[in-house]
Amino acid sequence: MKLSLFSATALLVLGCGGSSGSESKPGPVSFTPEPQPSDDGAAIYLVGRTEGDRVIVDVMAHGVSDLHGTAFRVKWDPDALALVDAQASSEWTKESVLLSKESLPGQLVVAWSEKGDGAGHDATQAIVLGTLVFDAKSRKGSAIAFRTDRSTALDHQGKTLAVAWRSGTVPAR
């Protein structure tokens, strides 16, 4: 592991320098979540895994008992990552409204919500709200970050839930 990490850093340096004249193969792509604070409070956060150059990020919710819907935006560096898919999870009912759109390069707008005024989802234990899939386009790293000023979660009465928004990073290779 140590070697691998070292190699990645070295490759990055080489890649950025760009003067060697020969492209070496980039190291494996990875995802680093934003550290979880010790209080372990209510949060919507990202958990990632990789498959080759593909980064698969689950949008998780934890610590809320009545999550009726969420609206958020996610930003990334479009030179580093390409959005392949954004799928809501099977937690949502068939009647729910599930919308996502990469409206600007590197900016995904999402609305996942139940319809009607029934109770929301119990996320006192962590649940997966949906999954975002990216392909790494280059050696560049990028944050995959919630725009907290454009993100919210509501309960079934329409009250805003106090949640922390924790993002993640795909480090440079």
Binding site: H68, R73, V110, W112, G116, T152, L154
Partner: peptide, 14 residues
Amino acid sequence: TDGFDILKCARLVG
């Protein structure tokens, strides 16, 4: 037009 507009109304469906 983003998720805030959707959430404003989704709860009122019905």
